[in-house]
Design a protein around this nucleic acid. Sequence first.
DNA 1: ATATACATACCGACCAGTTGGTATGTTGTC
DNA 2: GACAACATACCAACTGGTCGGTATGTATAT
Lengths: 208, 208
Amino acid sequence: MPKVATRQDARQKLLDAALSVIRTKGYSATSVDELCAAAGVTKGAFFHHFKSKEELGVAAANHWSQITGALFAQAPYHEHADPLARIIGYLEFRKALLQGGVPEFTCLVGTMVQESYETAPAIREACNASISDHAAALEPDIEAAMRDRALAADWSAASLALHTQAVLQGAFILAKAKGGAAVAADSIDHLIRYLKLLFGPGAAERQS
Amino acid sequence: MPKVATRQDARQKLLDAALSVIRTKGYSATSVDELCAAAGVTKGAFFHHFKSKEELGVAAANHWSQITGALFAQAPYHEHADPLARIIGYLEFRKALLQGGVPEFTCLVGTMVQESYETAPAIREACNASISDHAAALEPDIEAAMRDRALAADWSAASLALHTQAVLQGAFILAKAKGGAAVAADSIDHLIRYLKLLFGPGAAERQS
DNA sequence: ATATACATACCGACCAGTTGGTATGTTGTC
DNA sequence: GACAACATACCAACTGGTCGGTATGTATAT
């Protein structure tokens, strides 16, 4: 029996618990006690690993970056030869992720940054890094697609990458408001349509 | 001296205070005491007008709907003869609203629904109504634009209207994460570009 | 005109429960 | 035996909410 396994992993259990609890109730409404209960850990363990609730918030945002980073890095859409196909594939992948209850497919950092952007700068910055890094990962494919089609656009690859994240974050808000994933899928479809119009046949001629 | 003025307006003062305080700190992190202090009102007055904090949340969402409803109803973009111009005008208007600090231009109900969608059904529904009604107000113009151009689209006016709200809500999240309005404006620009591609010259031929 | 009756608007002390955080153990490991 | 990884007990501050009370307005009957 790996006795070591029960020891030393309180931090991980807290971090994992934070992902689901905070996505369900929000950061402020989530108490330390609740987090400990969900993780099956005592309060002493909590403050042994995190010197404050805010530090847990920062760590949770970073944890989220790691997990989602790994998920998207190994996703199959990277295999497409055409960069545009990879971008569309990414968005189809995000649509396919809209499974289960709303708390299960929504974004931790999008939720957290709303509550803490003015009151907890460290959390805001960790959330910003998570979103911005994820967006930055899309830039090379967007740039390649622009080059392929010789697009002389009045927008940058970076701004389009951020726009995809805006649509996704907004789609999550609508899903929360309406209590279902359907709206979110519709919004992603509109984004896909936008990309196809931007990069599709005759696109270079339409833009100048 | 209007002695009456000092009476009876505690409710309004609380509602107005709620708009700014909740947009800054979020719903959960805003305490009743804080709300009272910001409104210059006592706790007794609070619970005289609202039987619970949650009821204040619902009332604040409705108050927000009223205020924003009036703002957009009297906005100048309705004067355009062309329905597409009205839609683009609406989005330009929203871009022009990105002034001042982040808490001043972001959306109350978008913020609130993130925190309460699972825990406070009444607030969720009030926020949903605010967003959905606002989106619904855009539908007639979208439908008219589709009719004008004889678009046989595989998307509905309703879904496009909701998509505009998703982009706006997402733009606010990015603005909060990055600490400035610039990203939000860029995202609205992408949305405007999408609409121009959807409805612009040759659009009917491109879609089938 | 005025007394009675009642409703509305508001005040502020108070309460029980919860909050984030701390101080002091205990236990296993190198 | 030193140190990390926890557990337990506890605390002051704050939380949403209650409650008895007061000031003011209004309808009605006399």
